[in-house]
Computed example of a mutant assay.
Amino acid sequence: MSPTSNLYRAARPAFRARAFFFRPKPQTGARFQSTTASGPQSESWVKRMWDSPVGLKTVHFWAPCMKWALVLAGISDFARPAEKLSVTQNGALTLTGLIWTRWCLIIKPKNYFLAAVNFFLGMVGIVQVTRIGLYHQKQKRLAAEGKTEEIVKS
């Protein structure tokens, strides 16, 4: 008989007993904990996110992940000159972001991840619309100054 088979034969009763694997953990400070508090703490973060109503297997998680691309695209447009930006596009992004931020806090279940991405989308839109507005205001001022110079010369 080989030593491995003796070890196997000696350990077999321990592996058959379920209590060997599932011993209750000793609780420290049990008088300050409720019995309901031990359930969610024992689950891993991945398990809680998987089972959450706004978790990893739902559209409530993946839609905001994809919407961050719009925020990043808006941020990348900060480098573009203001005359090449579209007022209607950035206005639509601003309104969409602000309206949906409020909506995400009203719906059940509340989706703070989606509210965050919509808030940042609204903020990026406000910055871009402000840049466009300031550019057009500057162009009008320069045009008005140019016309007054022509009047003074004539």
Rank of each mutant, 00 (worst) to 15 (best):
K153I: 04
A73L: 14
V127I: 13
R9L: 06
P109L: 05
T58E: 01
L98D: 00
T88L: 13
P13N: 06
L114T: 02
A69K: 05
Q41T: 08
L95V: 14
I75M: 14
P13K: 07
K110P: 01
R23M: 07
D51A: 14
F20I: 02
T4D: 09
S5V: 12
K108Y: 09
T148R: 14
S2M: 07
G74L: 03
W45D: 02
L95K: 00
K147E: 09
Q128L: 15
A63M: 15
G122L: 02
A144P: 00
S5L: 12
A69P: 00
E43Y: 12
E83A: 10
S2N: 13
N90W: 11
Q137F: 07
C104D: 12
E149N: 01
R9N: 11
Q89I: 06
R12T: 00
V152I: 10
N118A: 06
I75L: 15
G39Y: 12
M123H: 00
T96K: 01
W103F: 12
A37V: 14
K67C: 10
F61L: 12
A115F: 07
Q89C: 02
L56H: 08
S52K: 04
F21S: 09
P13E: 04
P53N: 04
W62D: 02
F32G: 09
F20W: 10
T58N: 04
Y8H: 12
A19I: 10
A69G: 07
V87K: 13
A19P: 00
A116V: 11
G91Q: 02
E43M: 15
V59L: 15
G133L: 08
L134V: 06
G29E: 06
F61R: 11
V46H: 12
L70G: 07
L98M: 12
M1D: 11
L56Y: 13
A63C: 09
L93Y: 07
I151K: 09
T35P: 03
P26V: 09
P24Q: 10
A79I: 09
K84V: 01
A10D: 05
D51C: 10
R23N: 08
F120A: 04
I75C: 10
Q41M: 06
R16M: 05
P53Y: 05
A143R: 14
T130G: 05
I99V: 15
P53G: 07
L72S: 04
R131F: 00
A69T: 14
I151N: 05
Q89Y: 14
V71E: 01
S86R: 04
F15H: 08
K138L: 08
P13D: 06
R23T: 11
H60D: 13
L98G: 05
Q41L: 11
T148S: 07
A11P: 00
Q128K: 10
K138W: 03
A69H: 05
L72G: 03
Q33F: 02
Q41G: 03
L98Y: 12
R102P: 01
V87M: 15
